[in-house]
Amino acid sequence: MALLIVPAGLLTFMLLVGPMLWMGRISLNEYSVEQFMIEALTLQNYVKAIVDPYYLNVLAVTFGVALLCTALTLLLALPVAYALARTERSWKSLMVIVTLFPLLVGNVVRSAGWMAILGKGGLINYTLRLLDLPEVKMMYTTSAVVIGIVAVVLPYMILTLCSVIESVPRNLEEAAENLGARRLRTFVSVLWPLMRPGVAAGSVLVFVLCMNTYATAVLLGGPQFKMMAPAVYDQFVIANNWPFGAALAFILLAMTLLFTVAGSMLLARRYHRK
């Protein structure tokens, strides 16, 4: 039986663990303009990233945006997922396909679409001009990035929550309502506690995707807005400082892992306590 996991294990090692080990080694090297990279065993790249206020700020912005997007996505996904899970109409499968549809388009294309809507000459400002209203600056703002990210991750949250809500028997809600509970009370006291593990799974998935946002942050945030994934890219590709880029990538990985594990443990503990 254990042999069955060997092919997948080997593939994961070759394609994920191997490159990460190699990148871990690079992060301990030194950068040199003339020689590109000098073999070394130093932690100076990690120290530089941790003490530099600029990168601390980039990390804080990344964490803040990821947290805000996860919360907004959860709020927006809940009613849609509930409606989708509880509907018994024939067009349910069509609705699932419509939810999945945005995932068929790449992040870059979707961000380009948002640029056409939020830009100076975009749909919103065009409409405002037609109505003789003052234009609003939306492109290259944190709000534009948040809108773009939420649009990307929303289907993941909807589908995760939908499967969890479907697994909660409907007659539990009916029993609560028979006993006089209003809809909100039924949701808070019956449905929410039972769907909490699914909420945790969806939130973790969305949070990880948000922490690693690249295309949306670059295209909608502009050159002055910086999150961690674009900062890693800049170090590898523009500055050619691979050791520092690798150190930043590991710091991003460690932070994502830390917050993900902490969040999951917190939600799981509260669920078991109930």
């Binding site: 303009v33 600029y54 700020n57 910086k226 800049d234």
Partner: peptide, 18 residues
């Protein structure tokens, strides 16, 4: 220019744009 490039890029990213 090549020797100064890391410093130029660093200043541009952190001080001028940041």
């Amino acid at each position: 220019s090549a020797r100064m490039n890391p410093q130029v890029l660093d200043f541009w990213t952190k001080q001028f744009k940041g």
